[in-house]
Design a protein around this nucleic acid. Sequence first.
DNA 1: CCCGGTTGTCGAAGCGCTTCGACACTTGTT
DNA 2: AACAAGTGTCGAAGCGCTTCGACAACCGGG
Lengths: 344, 344
Amino acid sequence: MSRPTTGRSVVKITDVARHAGVSPSTVSYVLSGKRTISEETRRRVRDSIRELGYRPHAGARALASSRSNVLALMIPLRSGIAVPVVMQFAMSVVTAARRHDHDVLLLTQEEGEDGLRRVADSALVDALIVMDVQMKDPRLPLLRSLDRPSVLIGFPADADDLTCIDLDFHAAGAVCVEHLAGLGHREVALIGSPPEVYARQTGFAQRVADGFGAAVREHGLTGGVHPCEAAPEAARALVARLLAERPGLTGILVHNEPVVDTVVRALRANGRAVPQDVSVVAICPDDLAEHAEPALSCVAIPAQEVGGRAVELLMGKLDGGTVPAATLLPPTLTPRASTAPAPR
Amino acid sequence: MSRPTTGRSVVKITDVARHAGVSPSTVSYVLSGKRTISEETRRRVRDSIRELGYRPHAGARALASSRSNVLALMIPLRSGIAVPVVMQFAMSVVTAARRHDHDVLLLTQEEGEDGLRRVADSALVDALIVMDVQMKDPRLPLLRSLDRPSVLIGFPADADDLTCIDLDFHAAGAVCVEHLAGLGHREVALIGSPPEVYARQTGFAQRVADGFGAAVREHGLTGGVHPCEAAPEAARALVARLLAERPGLTGILVHNEPVVDTVVRALRANGRAVPQDVSVVAICPDDLAEHAEPALSCVAIPAQEVGGRAVELLMGKLDGGTVPAATLLPPTLTPRASTAPAPR
DNA sequence: CCCGGTTGTCGAAGCGCTTCGACACTTGTT
DNA sequence: AACAAGTGTCGAAGCGCTTCGACAACCGGG
């Protein structure tokens, strides 16, 4: 009796209304809460809904209310982008969206501007989230012109009229240097993302390098930036070269997920113990750092939080509110076994 | 002039109709091709559509046609499931769906049966794809009762009335053993997925073990199955134990992505060269195998193809066709540097 | 030259929901 | 006692599209 009717769900709002002895509009108002309905009526309607197993038709709702309750999420699938991190973003976006009674439509980067325009103009989605934003991203003009709110995960060169959120990569680069400087290291190096990532002007890679450079200068250290292909051979070669060219090098910041392990092993292979001879700090997901050996001091990318916050921002905009144009999440460095005072 | 009107897209089908000098229904038929329209009229309508920048309203369309052109994809995010592979699936599903003019709605496993029911009953989606199917999956009864077609990626114990597709993991396990047997190995071992994966009765882990076992028997080899946590320490401990307990062991099949590297290194650490002393073959993504050292012989999970085929199956069902209930993709073993004739 | 059969187009009736104005009551105020 | 100000509910008008039946216009075959 209290079980939803089995079989086909052809139950519509008029059925619920009849069953509860009210008009369809009343049912609608119970569902949306947009008008006051007496406690008594609300109860009856809710009971009928449950009993009949009623589910509002999404299309009809979207048509009548011009709200689809769907968000678009465009995710990258390219070299130099860490897959697990992207996945974490996606999942946290979906989870956060559900908390606001929204669903998530998945778009691939290769759909590009047309894809965004398509889902926006057809009213398939109410708002958009875009990941992996380049410094000069071709999608920016489109997003600005669209009549639907959007949030970027990442920062382009010109963010006017756009809402952006990301880890503060500049600060992340700096904080790592400060950590090393605080341990007495004087000569450091950044092993960065693959050259193509810099070439693409992907914001975060450049920003880490900038933050690194600024902190190096500020603390009077010496240190250079070294892009590195995401392949073990490349990493090994780079480490060997660095050690050869810079005998005083004792601190390394790795911002290149796929090769963090390799870097540590290459150091050992070249006779340097970590952290006794060389300290290593990374910008990478926490779980990767934890499972490395030794466990790596790192600044983690708070994918969970970024995704969640991105959705909150979007909801704010959808509700007509004003939201901060830029949200930079402060980096947190978790010290682990891979960093130690500089050898003297 | 031929540029779409800038600014708000409030263009509706009646606007296009007026602009082209036809009735709205004619525009609709041009778009859907469900009735013959003269070449001349079609051209005029298409031109008007382009000129006005018309995009049909997704909700209105869904309401009138009871087709949303959206597919649901439920993906796992759990321990023991390889994230990059999941991502590949997702991307290939999205790409394939787009080829059929459909979009993809992302659901997380934790939404469970309610989530599936919600999107299906509200007509948000036309059909569903479910990944990471357990042997006895609680979602199966629901999927059977739903009035919308679905496809499972993975095989449950009882697949009656369901459409399933996956790599033939049984054959994959067997083919690896055959590869080793062909090279003269007599004593082999399977380093499998974490125990919890077997406990959950996730089909593919069990099937690999079965295929492995069957082939071992058939070829008169000796060999056992050893679940392994996805942590380096666990893998190292397991390798050490295996080598100690089974001195004659010369062939290892690894079906546990996160530890493949570790296994090879652990073998070396225990004084066994790969492939000179011990051959290693893996079931894992190709790129992981390629970048390992030595490059690993492996059976890759054809995520790309599985995702694409899953969508094709779904489209077939949506078009009212009958599709094969079970699709098992044959495994392909790519020999690489990690396997060699058994030492004598 | 009329008739059955195409072929191409139109008009109108929904699809299932939201929302706006109306309205009947109930309260509280003077 | 009369009225202004809420409350709670209803009816009807769309939202923008698809689809069905109708129907001209044209075709060749008797």
